[in-house]
Amino acid sequence: MNNERRRLLIGALGSIGLIGTSRVYATAEEVETAIKAIAGDAQIQQGALTLNAPEIAENGNSVPISVSVDSSMTSDSYVESVAIFADANPTPQVITFHFTENSGEAYAATRMRLATTQNVVAIAKMNDGSVFTDTKNVKVTIGGCGG
């Protein structure tokens, strides 16, 4: 390996390190702010919403999650939306599901990316304005944001 190439390589490695440490991740506060924006003045309750996520995800590139909400899903009483947040990904937003009375049941599943071990937070908003939340901590063996 010649000197020029070695210098470039060291430089490149150095800059990767720099990017690694200076990259801004989402924080629990950001997630809290986003949740407050959805909840407004409503009291955030536990119970009706269940978030399913694995305890340990071997591959952070594709982590199966699902949400379900106890609701009759009629035109009088239905779930408007369920939003998912992750508190240590580069950005906290993951996905927002919108339901209608044609949904029949407030259930949705997808696969998400997790950069590292962190909390996944779901927040459900009902048509009467009430708000429910559920949180799961997922341990990630290999991060899913590619660096």
Binding site: F97, F99, T100
Partner: peptide, 27 residues
């Protein structure tokens, strides 16, 4: 949509895995 009326939709952010998969219900 079912017969042109909305059933389910979602806003997706980059934290959703490649080849996005979705499962949901419809009445």
């Amino acid at each position: 949509f079912f017969n042109d009326s909305p059933v389910f939709s979602c806003d997706i952010d980059p934290a959703v895995a490649s080849n996005p998969f979705l499962e949901f219900r419809a009445k």
